[in-house]
Design a protein around this nucleic acid. Structure first.
Length: 294
DNA sequence: AAGACGAAAGTGGTTGA
DNA sequence: TCAACAACTTTCGTCTT
């Protein structure tokens, strides 16, 4: 940022809550929120002690921010009696080997997970859960013979759906660059092995996101939800793709609420074709008396 | 001219023998 | 492993606004 007055880039936070240009003295911002701690520390030890928040324990860091080591450096083990020493060395060697290879795997996989989560705009809870399950999958040796990426993407697919923020296979495939077929395979395999109960995605879960993408109001969303509810009561949805249903109900709701979008617009953002929208839409209009349009 | 509609043929995935 | 099947897509011609 540059000073609008003199073009200088040199600023100081004079006192608290004000941003001042060092060259011409103009006050650029006031009433800023002061996020520095209210306590003072005079050395590293005090800082450590007074800080109330450290980095949280998290599965998204491969060692949860903590890791185990047996004996620090070379000196530590001399405290152990001579005859046991060789044994401890061996234990340490293997411990290191095991955790190193697992760490490398996890480190790489989790950075990929990071990338995908942010690209797909998934909530933190999904991120955590996937990281947790991935570690479990590694421990069970499920990644062998499959690429880490495919397992990660499969888990994202599963968890996102389970937590009510589903992403379509297409979206995940686009973001990860992995074939839908491959994701599907890994997904079934992992779900079976890890004993994840998965139910088909609910059309409702797609509503908020796609409505947002289409710039539709809350009324339209509520309307779309009601349409889906009615359709479900009449058993119109079994076997139908949830995205198609979501798309059609959004389309109808938008028309009814006077915020019409074209079938093409809806189809493109949801990722189905106009034809599918039309088919669902026809069924819905027929079966539920939706003639309050005029 | 753009959007909506629908028929027909093609595709990928599930199911049941 | 194979064939049958339903859902969905692609393509394209026609109708409506």
């Amino acid at each position: 940022m540059t000073c609008p007055d003199c073009g200088s880039t040199d600023f100081s936070k004079e006192g608290k809550g004000e941003l001042i240009c060092k060259k011409c003295g103009i006050v650029l911002d006031e009433n800023m929120i002061d996020d520095s701690p209210e306590w003072r520390a005079f050395n590293a030890e005090q800082r450590e002690k007074k800080a109330r928040a450290g980095s949280p324990i998290t599965y998204t860091k491969h060692d949860m921010g903590l890791s185990t080591k047996i004996g620090k450096g070379s000196g530590e083990l001399y405290k152990v009696a001579g005859n046991k020493r060789a044994q401890y060395y061996r234990i340490r060697k293997w411990h290191n080997r095991l955790t190193k290879s697992k760490d490398r795997n996890l480190g790489f996989a989790l950075s990929e997970l990071n990338r995908l989560v942010s690209q797909l705009n998934l909530p933190r809870s999904v991120h955590e859960e996937v990281a947790r399950l991935y570690e479990k999958a590694v421990d069970k040796g499920l990644v062998r013979g499959r690429s880490m990426e495919s397992v990660i993407t499969a888990l994202i697919y599963t968890v996102a759906r389970k937590q009510g923020t589903p992403r379509t296979l297409d979206e995940i495939s686009d973001a990860s660059g992995i074939e839908k077929r491959e994701i599907g395979r890994a997904y079934r395999y992992v779900a079976r092995e890890l004993d994840l109960k998965i139910r088909p995605a609910k059309p409702q879960d797609y509503i908020p996101r796609f409505a947002g993408d289409l710039g539709l109001s809350g009324e339209v969303q509520a309307r779309a939800r009601r349409i889906i509810e009615q359709a479900k009561e009449q058993d119109l949805l079994s076997g139908k793709g949830p995205t198609g249903v979501a798309a059609a109900s959004l389309y109808i709701a938008a028309v009814l609420e006077g915020e019409k979008r074209t079938q093409r617009e809806v189809a493109d953002t949801v990722g189905v074709t106009e034809v599918t929208i039309r088919n669902r839409y026809k069924e819905l209009v027929e079966e539920i008396g939706l003639h309050e349009v005029e």
